[in-house]
Amino acid sequence: MLYKLNLENILFLDIETVPQEENYAQLEPEKQMLWEHKTQYQRKDEITAEEFYERAGIWAEFGKIVCISVGFFAFDGDDRSFRVTSYHGAETDILKSFKNLLIEHFGQAKHLLCAHNGKEFDFPYIARRMLINGMKLPYKLDLFGKKPWEVPHLDTMELWKFGDYKHFTSLKLLANVLGIPSPKEDMDGSMVRQVYYDEKDLDRIVTYCELDVVTTAQVFLRLRGETLLANSEIKKV
């Protein structure tokens, strides 16, 4: 039962990713060949591997993380707050900072990680990028040998499915149907590569990522039947 979980033990998160290189031509020939093979069934016949490369951020083998935003609940008596912070910049620095957060503040058995579509994207992507960057996985991301009920991950998309695995429900759609006010976003996930490489506006990406963390927390509250966060309860730290 969701309402039995202690909100203070949950770390909400979201990641933003881009292709490892700005352009396909910057890839080494072997990596170009591997990209072509990896995407041959995803691409339409008329779309070349080079044209498809703008979507490379979806795959951890060909992309990189440019921002991880996290949020957590804090209570002071009857006062509730949701504190949001972000790690951005060089990917190795992002991953090290996030790993330290997990070890130092969310490493106990009671702690859980929560993201929208996190089990299919965010959690495995972070774990793969850590290994690619030569980092040992923290306990919360090392799933080897764990039974399903021992995996410390929550996924708001999975919770919404109620056992139905036929379709994907976006965070934006779920927030809409649950009556959660839509934040004033000036971009969507498909624009992250352009904003990062062409506009070089990382701050805009960070803001977008943080809004998704807040929205994920709001969805979780609605799934528990609790009052949504007011703007005054959301704190940037």
Rank of each mutant, 00 (worst) to 15 (best):
K4Y: 13
L5S: 06
L7M: 07
E8Y: 03
L11T: 05
L11S: 08
F12V: 05
V18I: 14
V18K: 03
E22T: 05
N23A: 14
A25P: 05
Q26T: 06
E28A: 15
E30P: 04
W35D: 07
E36F: 01
Q40L: 12
Q40V: 12
Q42G: 14
K44N: 14
A49N: 08
E50R: 05
F52S: 06
R55K: 14
I58G: 07
W59T: 07
G63W: 00
I68N: 01
S69I: 06
S69E: 04
G71E: 02
F72T: 08
F75G: 11
D76T: 10
G77M: 11
D79A: 13
D79R: 14
D79F: 02
R80E: 12
R80T: 14
V84E: 01
V84Q: 04
V84W: 02
T85S: 08
T85R: 10
H88K: 09
A90H: 08
E91Q: 15
L95F: 05
K96C: 10
F98M: 02
F98H: 04
F98E: 03
N100F: 07
I103V: 15
G107V: 09
Q108Y: 08
L112Q: 10
L113W: 02
C114P: 04
C114W: 03
A115S: 15
F121I: 07
I126C: 00
I126V: 14
I126W: 00
N133V: 07
K136N: 12
L137A: 07
P138G: 07
K140V: 07
K140C: 08
K140I: 08
F144A: 12
E150Y: 05
E150F: 03
L154W: 01
E158P: 00
W160M: 12
W160S: 14
K161S: 15
K161N: 13
F162Q: 15
G163A: 06
G163T: 13
D164M: 09
Y165L: 15
H167L: 12
T169K: 06
T169H: 09
L173D: 15
V177G: 03
I180V: 10
D186Y: 13
G189D: 04
S190Y: 14
V192Y: 09
V192A: 07
R193W: 13
V195A: 07
V195W: 05
V195H: 03
Y197S: 03
Y197H: 09
I205S: 01
I205Q: 02
V206I: 15
V206C: 05
T207P: 04
E210T: 01
E210D: 11
L211C: 06
D212K: 03
D212P: 00
V214E: 00
T216A: 07
A217V: 04
Q218A: 08
L221C: 11
L223V: 08
R224F: 12
G225S: 05
E226K: 12
L228C: 11
E233Q: 14
I234D: 00
I234L: 01
